Simulated assay, not measured.
Amino acid sequence: MSTKTESFPVQKSEAEWRAVLTPEQYRVLRGHGTERAGTSPLNHEKRDGIYVCAGCGAPLFSSEAKYESGTGWPSFFRALPGAVGTRIDRSFFMVRTEVHCATCGGHLGHVFPDGPPPTGERYCMNGVALVFRPKEE
């Protein structure tokens, strides 16, 4: 996993990550795993707010960019400026663009070029890697 050689503003040891994440969050965020499609409660989240990294709390996506992609994972057509980084993922005998938190390096999901206007991008994110923070009324 390449996040071990990259440097991010938030750094923790494996033991520290395991202490603050659930086993499933650790598997996805630190182990580049994927949650099962259709299992995230965030798929049905319709309120205004911000989606933050479950690992470090950094803001990643606005609810204004969320849409129903039909894939079974929370999907967004745009990330917040500077919030995510990408790298080539050659796992499973295919080439995809992996998305990670720019603050802690946690694996979030992948971005594909088949999203809606205005960007044409589909950030297909693991819901377990995100926490929804509703907008205060």
Results as ranks from 00 to 15, higher is better:
S2Y: 09
K4R: 11
T5S: 07
E6L: 13
S7L: 02
F8E: 10
F8L: 06
P9A: 09
V10G: 09
Q11V: 13
Q11D: 01
Q11N: 00
Q11F: 03
K12I: 13
E14A: 08
E14N: 15
A15L: 06
A15Q: 15
E16P: 05
E16Y: 13
W17Y: 01
R18K: 14
A19P: 02
L21D: 12
P23T: 12
E24M: 02
R27V: 11
G31D: 11
G33P: 10
T34G: 01
T34Y: 04
E35L: 03
E35G: 08
R36K: 15
T39D: 03
S40L: 11
S40N: 04
L42W: 01
N43S: 08
E45I: 12
K46A: 15
R47L: 01
R47K: 08
D48C: 00
D48P: 05
I50H: 07
I50R: 11
V52F: 00
V52S: 11
A54Q: 02
G57A: 04
A58S: 02
A58T: 07
L60W: 04
L60R: 04
L60K: 13
F61H: 06
F61A: 04
E64Y: 13
E64C: 02
A65N: 07
E68T: 12
W73D: 09
S75P: 14
R78Q: 04
R78P: 05
A79D: 13
L80E: 13
L80A: 08
V84T: 13
V84Y: 07
V84K: 02
T86L: 01
T86F: 07
R87L: 05
I88F: 05
I88C: 10
D89T: 01
D89H: 06
F92A: 14
F92C: 12
F92D: 12
F93H: 13
V95K: 07
T97V: 01
E98G: 10
V99R: 00
V99M: 00
C101D: 14
C101L: 09
A102R: 07
A102L: 11
A102N: 10
A102M: 03
A102Y: 02
A102V: 00
G105H: 15
G106L: 09
G106T: 07
H107F: 15
L108H: 06
L108Q: 09
H110T: 00
H110I: 01
V111C: 03
F112V: 09
P113S: 08
D114L: 03
G115A: 15
P117T: 02
T119P: 11
T119C: 14
G120F: 04
G120K: 08
G120V: 03
E121R: 09
R122H: 09
Y123R: 06
V128Q: 00
L130D: 01
F132L: 09
F132R: 06
R133W: 08
K135C: 11
K135H: 10
E137C: 12
E137S: 13
